[in-house]
Structures are given as C-alpha cells and as structure tokens.
Amino acid sequence: MFDLAETSSADLVERARDLDARLTDKQPLQVLEAILAERFEGGIASVSSFGTESAVLLHMVAQIDPDVPVLFLDTGMLFEETLAYRDQLREEIGLKDIRIFTPDVEEQARLDPENMLWATDTNACCGFRKVAPLGRALNGFGAWLNGRKRYHGDSRAALPMVEADGPRIKVNPLANFNAQDIQSYFVSHHLPLHPLQPLGFSSIGCMPCTSRTKDGEAPRAGRWRGTGKTECGIHIPG
C-alpha cells in the first residue's frame, strides 16, 4: 500500500504526475475505474456540490462503487432546491454514503453572526463556510474526486486529470468533458436535472452569490457576478 504518512511532498507530486500521464487521455469511466482500483492510505472520497452537472460524476462513481463516500458541504446558504436535489439523487442513483459537513458553529457566530458576510467579504465567507469544512471532511483521506471541467474556462482551462493537492491526490475525472458530453450523459442515463437549471441557472452555489446566466455567457458567469471572483477557494492551493 502507498503510505501517505511516510510519503514526502515530492513523492506525492511524482505519483500524481505518473497517474496523470497514464490517464490524461482516458474517458471518465476509465479514469474512475483506474483510480478506484488504486490503493490510497485512508481511501478515496468524492466531493459534490449537487449542482447542475453533479449527477454525471455521481452516477459514474455509483456504477463502479456506490459505497464511495460522497462529501457534501452544506454552507447554510444553499438553495432549498439543491438540498432536495441531493436527496433525489441519493435515492435515484443509489448513493450509500453521503456525509454532510457544515460550518463550525463558533466560527460562524464570530465571523458572520448576521449571515451577511457574503455582501462585504466573499472570500472570508467562502473560507469558513466551504474551505474550512472541506478541510475537516477530507481529513484522513488519501485522495478525492471532484467534477471540475476544462470547458468551464478561467483557472480550470488547463486542468490536469490528476494532481497533487496538499497531503493528498486530487482527481478531475471529467476534465475532458464538454457541455455536449454532459448533456448527452444526462439524456442517455435518464438523469434528473437540478430544479433550478430550467430556470436559467447553469452553475449553482450559495443563494446570495448565484445568479442566472444569459445565452452566450460562460457556464460559471452567474457565480459571484461582478466581483471578479471565480472560485470559492477549495481548489486554490493554501
């Protein structure tokens, strides 16, 4: 077994590069089958926002191993529709181990007692509502899956398939998928849409910082609109 505790950062980076070189041109299911067959100290988890495209990765993972833990960050600011969609996908896809993580109660009372920090400091708000809970959620795992894709642009345009992420491996199985690939997968596997997607929401996060997108806009244009912010922070190296 690859022992994360006895492995240096350089070794972790080298392992990530080796995996990326082997998997970079593979289809998502091939990537997942290979990664889920790997031995990671602490195992592997999938992180999901249960947003508009999330069902694709979740469905693929469930076809291979429905017992893979799915980590969900309930920020306290999510749309009710997202929470309902999470429960719907749990039943329809057959996810057996969804683990829900929330902001620390004392930290929230100190930093955002009125739940209005999003209006003045989006980075700080994302920090204690998403980044810190994810750190706790991933504690002990040797690797994690997420649903980022290159076609989303900005910092995601040059995504590797596999990368080193602090003390663990991060895998982007859908990196090569484009919008048509996503749509085709939904149709061919009869997956339900997020309830807000037909209303014009192409990417969905916390309610105060999510807006509809217009025809021709980038998929994530409705996230933190007008702020210049493009990422919540969980994919930004600390």
Rank of each mutant, 00 (worst) to 15 (best):
P195I: 11
H189A: 12
Q180G: 13
Q180P: 03
E163Q: 08
I169A: 03
R225E: 03
L174F: 06
P208M: 06
T230I: 08
P195F: 03
V187E: 12
H194W: 15
S188H: 06
A179P: 10
F177K: 05
G200T: 00
N176K: 04
G166A: 10
R220P: 00
W224I: 09
T213I: 04
G216Y: 06
Q183M: 13
P192Q: 01
L196S: 06
R225P: 04
A175G: 04
H189M: 07
R168I: 02
G166C: 10
F186W: 14
L193Y: 04
P219H: 05
K214G: 07
T230L: 11
I169N: 05
P195T: 07
G200M: 00
L193C: 15
Y185A: 11
A218K: 07
G222T: 02
A221I: 01
R225Y: 02
N178A: 06
F201S: 09
R225D: 01
S211M: 12
K214Y: 01
A179S: 15
C232N: 10
S202K: 06
C232Y: 14
D165L: 05
P219D: 14
V171M: 02
G166T: 08
E217H: 00
I169T: 13
G222E: 02
D215H: 13
R223V: 00
R220G: 00
V171T: 01
P208R: 04
V171L: 10
D165P: 12
S184P: 12
C232A: 07
S211R: 14
T210E: 09
E163K: 09
D215N: 09
N176G: 08
E163Y: 10
M207V: 07
N178Q: 05
S202D: 14
E163M: 06
V187W: 13
D165R: 05
A164S: 11
V162Q: 07
E217I: 00
C206H: 08
G222N: 02
K170I: 05
P195M: 13
I169H: 00
L196A: 03
P198M: 11
S203P: 05
G166Y: 08
A221K: 04
G200Q: 00
P198L: 07
L199K: 08
M207R: 02
P192C: 03
F186S: 02
R225V: 11
Y185N: 06
H189D: 10
S184W: 07
A221Q: 14
L196W: 02
L193W: 12
I182V: 10
W224T: 04
N172H: 09
K170G: 15
M207K: 09
P167W: 08
H189K: 15
R212P: 05
A164P: 01
L196Q: 06
I204L: 00
L193E: 09
K229R: 15
G228P: 01
P192K: 11
P208S: 07
S203Q: 01
F177T: 15
